[in-house]
Design a protein around this nucleic acid. Structure first.
Lengths: 200, 200
DNA sequence: GTCTATACTAGGATAGAC
DNA sequence: GTCTATCCTAGTATAGAC
């Protein structure tokens, strides 16, 4: 709009753009997301978004790294809280589901993983995926079988978010699906999304 | 190009466009795919692609329905072959993996499931997902727990395809991941993709 | 650090011929 | 049934001011 808004230190501005970007990228995907939508959500001009990150592609990469950091941090915190008397998956699962509160984060990740064919983004996507796998294996101590079962469930969680299935459905098949996918975290999901549709 | 190529009955042309569309949509996703790339792959003009389906959106929807049919048909065939002395998941899994030979099909499905926010496509995506779930539950007789485990593994398979991880990697983590994800179908995957990268 | 204005391009869709 | 030519919009990126 007309006059410069809340002037802000560069680092803070960067963060606020990244947060907006994760939401928009999560909702629409990389290609369909517009830098203008991100700008509006961040409350700044489209040109300034580009100024700050150089290009839409660079912004997406920064956003992806940011989300990847959120996930790895969340997993590491969960791992630190674990004692070895119980399975660690519920803790990791809860950490993952809680990231859904960061609107867009999990679905942005899902979008990232569909971009393997992109010459710039593809390598980052592969590395990010393998990085998460390595944490599950080496830091959480999961066998490959347990790790893939956990990852599969995580992809399913993200898919359900991306589909925007209703968090509270009258359709019994949907309700049962959510129970089976979110398990002990189902109440957490309902709390996060209430009556609204699930989205990232 | 210049002069009309192989003139073809409308139905056959439709199919050949759908096949090309699945490949391009699978590779790039809905938004990034261009009707021109689809046209080139199908060997016809961009304008004719639009002519044939009305719009890019309509083409995507038709492609999605087509892929959904491939999946449901493949599952039903697998179910028909099952005897009840063994778990049915390996049969279903093999059927699913074989669809990867239809370049783009599985990853197109993955893209479809990220489009929940789209007013036109979203409802189709949700219905398609629930339709697959219903087959697993009602026709294959899986409990909801087994169905979600199977679906999660399927999403992981599609994600690995979308990431284009190499089918034969020197990286031990990747190799082990593929083994754990594809299980008894690992040889089939290698046969399908040989030395090439995995893609849809 | 942030804006307005604008240049430029890609790509979906239409018109009309054959 | 299929093409060429073209219109038109959306959206990224740049220039330059404050």
């Amino acid at each position: 709009m007309t006059t410069p808004r809340t002037r802000m230190p560069a680092a803070a501005r960067r963060t606020s753009i990244l947060v907006a970007a994760a939401e928009v990228f999560g909702q629409r995907g990389y290609a369909a997301a517009t830098t203008d939508a991100i700008a509006q959500l961040a409350g700044i001009s489209q040109a300034y978004v580009i100024r700050s990150f150089g290009s839409k592609e660079a912004l997406f990469i920064a956003t992806a790294e940011h989300v990847l950091d959120l996930v790895t941090d969340a997993f590491r915190t969960a791992i630190a809280e674990a004692d070895d008397t119980r399975r660690i998956e519920p803790l990791l699962g809860a950490a993952y589901v809680r990231l859904a509160a960061d609107r867009g984060a999990l679905v942005t990740l899902l979008h990232l993983f569909t971009l393997g064919q992109d010459p710039r983004i593809g390598p980052i996507a592969r590395a990010g995926f393998l990085r998460i796998l390595a944490i599950l294996r080496e830091e959480a101590g999961l066998s490959m079988e347990r790790a893939t079962a956990f990852l599969g469930n995580g992809m399913l969680v993200s898919t359900i978010l991306g589909l925007q299935l209703p968090a509270e459905s009258e359709d019994p098949a949907t309700a049962e699906l959510l129970e089976a996918t979110f398990r002990e975290n189902t109440p957490l999901v309902r709390e996060l999304f209430g009556g609204r549709d699930l989205d990232g």
